[in-house]
Structures are given as C-alpha cells and as structure tokens.
Design a protein around this nucleic acid. Sequence first.
DNA 1: CAGCATCCAGTGGGATACTG
DNA 2: CAGTATCCCACTGGATGCTG
Lengths: 113, 113
Amino acid sequence: MVNYNGRSYVCLLDFAMDFIRGKWTAVLLCHLYNEPKRFLELQRMTEGISQKVLNEKLKELENDELVCKKVYAEIPPKVEYSLTDKGKELTSIIKEIESWSVKHYPELDNKCI
Amino acid sequence: MVNYNGRSYVCLLDFAMDFIRGKWTAVLLCHLYNEPKRFLELQRMTEGISQKVLNEKLKELENDELVCKKVYAEIPPKVEYSLTDKGKELTSIIKEIESWSVKHYPELDNKCI
DNA sequence: CAGCATCCAGTGGGATACTG
DNA sequence: CAGTATCCCACTGGATGCTG
C-alpha cells in the first residue's frame, strides 16, 4: 500500500500509472514534448478534448509536477505550458509505448503527434 | 482518429494506452512477467483485487493478445496465464515507468512486484 | 485568451453470493 | 479451483454557457 496526497494505491506502479491513466493525459504530455504550448494551441492540437477537461488535465499535470505553467502578465492573457524534467522523462517512456503500438499495429494509421 | 474493435480513439497512443489504463492492468502484467501464474496465485499476489475484476481484466488481456491462457484438462481445474511476446514487450516498458517512480519518489516504499 | 460553473451520462470497479 | 451473476456507487469526461 502506498499513500500519497490523500489517495491510496495498491503499489508504487499503481501510483505511477495514476499519473497517466486519464484518457487525455498521455496525449497531452506528448504534445508538450518538443516545445512549450499555449492553452488554445493545445486545444487545437488535441482534437476532441473539451475545454473543461483540458483545464482539469493541465491542473492535474501541474500538481503532479509533470508540467510547468508560465503566466505572462499581458492582455489578452498568455499562458505557456511546458514539461518539467520529471515530466519529460516520463513522456519519453510514453513515447516507447507509442512505438510499441506502431510496431504491433502498423495497419492503424498514426494520426497522432 | 483510430477505429478498432468497435471503439474509436483519438490517436494511436490513445489506443495503446487503453490496453493498460485500467486500475489493475499494469500490475497484473508485471506479476506475469517472469513466469506463468495460476488464477488463485494471481489473486493472492494482487492484494485488493476482487475476483470479478481479476476475471474481467484477464479476459481483456487475453482479447488484446497480451496474455495467453492455457487450460489443463484436470480436476480440479488448472489454468495458467502467461505473457505473449507482444505483452512481454509492453510489460518491459511498464517496468520503466515503475523505475521512473522509484527514482522520483524514493520515499514511497516499493511494496509491489 | 484562458479559464470557471453546472448538469448529466457511461462505465469501471467494489461487494457479495452461487456453480461445474 | 476457476470461474459467473447481480447490484450499486463513484468518478471521469461530455456539453453548454458565462467571465476577467
């Protein structure tokens, strides 16, 4: 049993998987892999995600310290999201999962990232 | 958009993550990493999982061809579950995620696997 | 532009009891 | 031993509308 932040997990792997379990989480991390992105940019890249969920996910990722949020004091508002080092490491593993799927399901066109 | 088996995914990564998104999936795969395991054995190793969910997950994993089920014609029944090659490859990536969590959260005792 | 507030539906998983 | 069958709740994410 692992307890963290008021939640409990059956083991450390369960805990780690919880970071990326959400439907959009892994995809968003990959979208941030190369360069920082703005909110609207992320929303456009991530076809199908609702604004509400994008917000929730970005907050989660920020709390988990996988993503860093930078707010510019401008009008109209400008906010940039980027991966932390910890997040970048995790994302590179996620990319291995993507490679795994490309290898084993070549017939499914890769329309992502 | 990726369509497979009546479900649709926003991209190939979403599709791949769906294999391991469930609460117990990654843990079960790791438990099968070294050697085949019997049903009850898995249930005992995987503290907290209900019989119903263990069944559902094993069926999923079998459908996804990550796990192979071998039934011995004996009484009482004997069934063994093992990783397929595809499953073993994926599981080794999952183990990287576990290593990532060990590295970044050393304070959380690793009671798993 | 980058959010927040609501309301709502689908589903993943828990608890419990039964069987070839 | 290795399952099936129900019932049920909590939570994730969808849709829509409002705001500094």
